[in-house]
Simulated assay, not measured.
Amino acid sequence: MAAGLVGRKAVAEGFRACGVCERCRSGETSLCAGGYAETGFTEPGAFADHLTVPARLLHPLADDADLRAAALLEPAAVIAAAVRAGRPRPGERVAVVGAGTLGLLAVQLLAASSPAELVVVDPRAGRGEQARAFGASASGAPDEAAALHGRFDLVVETAGAPSTAASSCLLARRGGRVVLTGMFAPGATGIDPVHLSLSQLELRSVFGAPSAAWSDAVRAFGLGLLDPAPLITHEFPLERFAAAVALVGSGDPTVGKVLLRP
């Protein structure tokens, strides 16, 4: 690491792209063909006593950056990739499907594009209220969304629920854009190819984030356009790891992100 970086606050990309394959050289580092490698999965992660990552994956932060909030820059980078793919323009009608971590971060970034409408669809009223606090103009449950079919220029899906890929496409206007970011399980409802074809939708999917999207997320964080801190609902010292994991798996709807402090 360069001497000037020693002691700097920084965040590191998770995917360890090879940097030399055709996709990496095209800037699509999340599509690296060099084999899957990711910090915390194929390589030691943050539970290790020491964490070493290639310096090229580091994104320096401002000296006064809130590291508590910066812990959520990885999902923010995924959403930054989705926003890049969706290309929001001022004055457009935008919908976000799902108000979990990804959805609420999407609301923050999409609000910065000055949409005419920014509607969030989620069955949890409390999450809808939080989305409105983050910049959404309205929120509603999925069973209310039928009245909004064909309305939106851009739909960003973040839930990964069995029906949300298909329902997101129904929300888009003819010629609209849909970006899927949720992690779907086998058996999810398929997208109607007739609707996709006749409506001439532009459909993109996002998995992980390329380096450019990480840069977007870090810049937005530094400018105050993105603040993940309110998504953290609980903090534990590392010694209470078991209690933290139990809380995450409890199913309690009031539990957001749980932060472990070393």
Rank of each mutant, 00 (worst) to 15 (best):
C21N: 11
P115F: 13
P193S: 10
G100V: 00
L247G: 04
T158R: 00
L31D: 04
G249W: 03
D143M: 02
A95C: 10
R177K: 12
F152K: 04
V218G: 06
P228D: 10
G91C: 09
S197V: 09
E92G: 10
R219I: 04
G160L: 12
E129A: 05
G175L: 01
E74M: 14
V97R: 04
L226V: 07
A99L: 03
L154C: 00
M183Q: 14
P228N: 00
L5R: 15
R89G: 08
T42D: 02
E74T: 11
P90S: 06
S168D: 00
R177V: 11
A46W: 04
G251F: 10
G251C: 05
G135S: 12
E92Q: 14
A185H: 09
G222L: 14
A229K: 14
A166T: 11
G182Y: 03
A242L: 08
G126Y: 02
P162M: 14
A159Y: 04
E92Y: 07
V20G: 08
A229D: 07
L118A: 12
L171S: 06
D192N: 15
L67C: 05
H234N: 15
D122Q: 07
D153H: 12
P262W: 05
A165S: 08
S197H: 15
L110P: 02
G182L: 05
G150N: 08
A46T: 12
A217N: 02
E239K: 08
E202V: 10
E239I: 02
G135F: 09
D66Y: 15
A213F: 05
L198Q: 12
G176A: 07
V206D: 01
A165H: 01
S211E: 01
S197R: 15
V20I: 13
V121P: 05
R87K: 13
A116K: 11
S250W: 06
S113L: 11
A65V: 09
L225E: 14
L102E: 06
R261A: 13
S26I: 07
P262D: 07
D216Y: 08
R240H: 04
F184C: 12
C21F: 11
A242Y: 05
A217Q: 06
Q108D: 10
A188Q: 15
I191W: 02
D216R: 13
S114R: 15
